[in-house]
Structures are given as structure tokens and as C-alpha cells.
């Protein structure tokens, strides 16, 4: 990195961006509960035939003593659109018939945007930590937060950001089920 490059490109990790580290979204209670029918559709689409998900008798014989659900399933269950809060999918297509069906759709618990003019978004990786299996009937809560924001330099000396969003999922007994982290590159 030359002095000239440093002067050419202002830092991406500005104080305003740095201030976003640790910022959390609201705690969201997911719509509905963990239910067998949702799990059937999820596990069949995943192609995971594990009887721990559907065979009551067998499940009782396992160390869990009951049916369990895939931990990562709660991350999709949690993004259910609440029917009492409008229909953002239809709204997105009414606003823009060429909508991609996802980018402009508001989701519960979203974090405030990081104040940067770097707009290109690339996936930089995912992490998953698993602590307990959800049970049928569990109510799922989750909360997002910016767990890390770092600056890196591209080959041409242009700074970019790696933004990591962490989401913790827990149940009505405050048992942490899993933690996911999704990192994106902002160029």
C-alpha cells in the first residue's frame, strides 16, 4: 500500500460505520410455533428422512425423548411474514413488476443499514453454531446484531467492508437453539 493509494481512497470503516458494530435489532417473536407439518415440508425438501423428526415412538427412545426439529429450520420459520402486518410480497411486485421477490421485501427484525456508499453486496461466508434442537410447539424468538465490521483492501488498494450479521435463536424457555452468522462483502 503506497501513500498515494492511501490518500486516493478514503477509509471505508468510518466512525459512523464502526459505530454499527454491536447494534442490535428488536427481539422478534416468530409467527406461529414449531409444528410437525412445517417440519415435514422442510425435512422432505431437505431430503433428510431422519425418523427423529416424525416417528414419535422412536423419538421417545432417543436421548431427546421426543421429536426434534432441525435447528437451522428455525431461521426460515423466523422469516415468516406475519399475516397481521400486510403482504410485502404482493406490495413489492405492485411497486415493481420486475421485483426479484426478495430484495425489496421487508422482514421482521431487520437491522438499520450500515451508513456506507459501498453498494455492491457479495456473500462472504456463513457460520452456524448449534446448541439444542427445537421441539414441536416451541415459540421461536430471534435477534439480529452486527457482530463485526472490518475493512480490507482490494488488490487495487480500494478499501471494502466485511460486515457480519449474527442472529441468535432461542425458545420460550430462553434456551439458545442456534446462532448463525452471515458475512457480506460491500464494495
Amino acid at each position: 500500500m503506497t501513500q498515494q493509494q492511501q490518500q486516493t481512497h478514503p477509509p471505508a470503516l468510518t466512525p459512523a460505520v464502526q459505530a454499527m458494530i454491536g447494534v442490535s435489532g428488536e427481539v422478534v417473536e416468530s409467527w406461529g410455533v414449531v409444528d410437525g407439518e412445517y417440519m415435514r415440508r422442510f425435512t422432505q425438501a431437505l431430503m433428510d428422512p431422519d425418523p427423529r423428526y416424525w416417528d414419535d415412538e422412536f423419538a421417545k427412545s432417543t436421548r431427546y425423548g421426543e421429536l426434534i426439529a432441525p435447528p437451522i429450520m428455525v431461521s426460515y420459520l423466523a422469516s415468516r411474514i406475519r399475516p397481521d402486518q400486510g403482504d410485502p410480497i404482493t406490495a413489492a411486485f405492485e411497486e415493481n413488476p420486475e421485483s426479484d421477490g426478495i430484495g425489496s421485501v421487508a422482514r421482521p427484525g431487520e437491522l438499520p443499514p450500515v451508513p456506507t456508499n459501498l453498494v455492491r453486496v457479495l456473500n462472504a461466508g456463513n457460520e452456524l453454531e448449534v446448541y439444542a434442537y427445537p421441539s414441536i410447539g416451541d415459540t421461536i424468538f430471534f435477534q439480529n446484531r452486527y457482530s463485526d465490521i472490518r475493512e480490507r483492501l482490494g488488490r487495487d488498494g480500494t478499501p471494502f467492508l466485511i460486515i457480519t450479521r449474527e442472529t441468535r435463536y432461542w425458545n420460550q424457555d430462553d434456551v439458545t437453539l442456534c446462532i448463525t452468522r452471515a458475512s457480506t462483502i460491500r464494495r
Binding site: L46, A124, L128, V130
Partner: peptide, 26 residues
């Protein structure tokens, strides 16, 4: 793909192991 990962780890560690954590890129 990222949902296959915990399934894969679960299956390998069954019945009493634990598929603790993973990190990966797409």
C-alpha cells in the same frame, strides 16, 4: 446447501454426538 451441512454433521455424530459448529463460503 447450508441446511445440508448440519444434517450431514448430525447424521455422522448420531445418536449421541453433537454437530456443534461449521463455517463455509458459497
Amino acid at each position: 446447501k447450508q441446511s445440508v451441512v448440519p444434517q450431514y454433521l448430525k447424521d455422522w455424530t448420531l445418536p449421541n454426538g453433537w454437530p456443534w459448529k461449521a463455517r463455509f463460503e458459497h
